[in-house]
């Protein structure tokens, strides 16, 4: 038993290292200071309790992964400042809104949240072509 356990554990450690270093397939656009600040605000405001990025997060509001592209900056600004029927006005200042926009634009450039039908392989898995930022 012990041997099998140890072998599995070593495989896990090796796989972990591989995921950390190569999981992004070399596609990375480093965060700027503003993007980082935006990510901090995203977390402090707990936007994820209602919104998703890549389909992960809450269910009350829309997925925001590609909202930058789809809705555009001005519309996003208006929601963040005033809220909507369902979304509370979060009392963010201008700098925080700018940071959030920078963060969401950065997320948008990493890829698309919705997998298109052409990416579905007959075996059931996805083959997603890298979108190099």
């Amino acid at each position: 038993m012990r041997t099998v356990w140890i072998i599995l554990f070593i495989a896990f450690a090796g796989y972990t290292a591989l995921v950390y270093t190569n999981g992004d397939a070399g596609r990375m656009e480093p965060a700027t200071a503003q993007v980082r600040a935006g990510m901090d605000t995203w977390q402090q405001q707990n936007c994820a309790s209602c919104h998703q990025l890549y389909g992960l997060g809450g269910y009350m509001g829309p997925d925001l992964t590609n909202e930058y592209q789809r809705a555009g900056e001005e519309r996003m600004r208006a929601f963040m400042r005033y809220g909507s029927g369902r979304m509370p006005a979060l009392e963010l200042n201008d700098a925080e809104i700018d940071d959030l926009i920078a963060f969401l634009a950065w997320v948008d450039r990493t890829g698309s949240s919705q997998v298109s039908p052409e990416n579905v392989h007959w075996s059931g898995t996805y083959l997603i072509k890298p979108t190099t930022p």
Binding site: R27, M28, E29, P30, A31, Y54, T110
Partner: peptide, 8 residues
């Protein structure tokens, strides 16, 4: 966290 794909 500086690499969004890695972070998620």
């Amino acid at each position: 966290r500086d690499n969004y794909l890695r972070e998620i």
